[in-house]
Design a protein around this nucleic acid. Structure first.
Length: 168
DNA sequence: GCCAACGTTGGC
DNA sequence: GCCAACGTTGGC
């Protein structure tokens, strides 16, 4: 049987943008993990949940975006090392992300695991992105609030070049 | 700190 | 199922 959960199954790599407030969890925090993987837990928005549950797969790559700071900026890239699985912090009353509607038997929220890849030699600010015509359609610039969002391959290439990474 | 945009909730 | 009220996000 093909297309088992977590397997790539010949699908093209996809690209994403994950937002995080650096005071909560920064790119350096991700870099600093001993095993260099981290649960991306706590997402409590249905549109983002749907990406996490179904669309985001092992091997996909993501832009790491720092939000809610004076100069919002993409600081580097990371890789998905585990596809969507239930976000258990949602049924743990001790966690800050508890949601009584979610249970182990019927999870409501999902997360993925990611691994640090590399920082941008030149971090790319939001205002830089806004100045590039090819990026005018970016979800980030049109639907700023969505915390997990798709990035097209063309956008990915433009942004990596801006950031000073030749091949990603 | 302000406020626009947007997602969620709940009364009907 | 509509929609007003409300809460949150996040750029500025």
């Amino acid at each position: 049987m093909q297309g088992k959960t977590g397997e790539r199954g010949g699908r093209e790599r996809r690209y994403w943008l994950f937002k995080s407030e650096p005071s909560t969890f920064s790119f350096d925090d991700l870099k600093g993990r001993p095993e260099r993987t981290e649960h991306w837990d706590g997402v409590r928005n249905f549109q983002a949940r749907n990406y996490l549950r179904q669309e985001i797969q092992v091997g996909d790559r993501l832009l790491f975006y720092h939000s809610s700071i004076p100069e919002p900026v993409i600081v580097g890239i990371a890789e998905v090392v585990r596809g969507g699985y239930p976000d258990w912090t949602s049924w743990d009353p001790e966690s800050g992300h508890f949601d009584p509607r979610s249970t182990e038997a019927k999870p409501l929220w999902y997360m993925v695991d990611v691994r640090y890849l590399r920082p941008f030699p030149r971090p790319v600010t939001r205002s830089e992105l806004k100045a590039i015509p090819e990026l005018a359609g970016m979800v980030l610039l049109k639907k700023s609030r969505l915390s997990i969002q798709p990035v097209s391959e063309a956008e990915w290439r433009v942004i990596l070049r801006l950031g000073g990474i030749e091949e990603g």
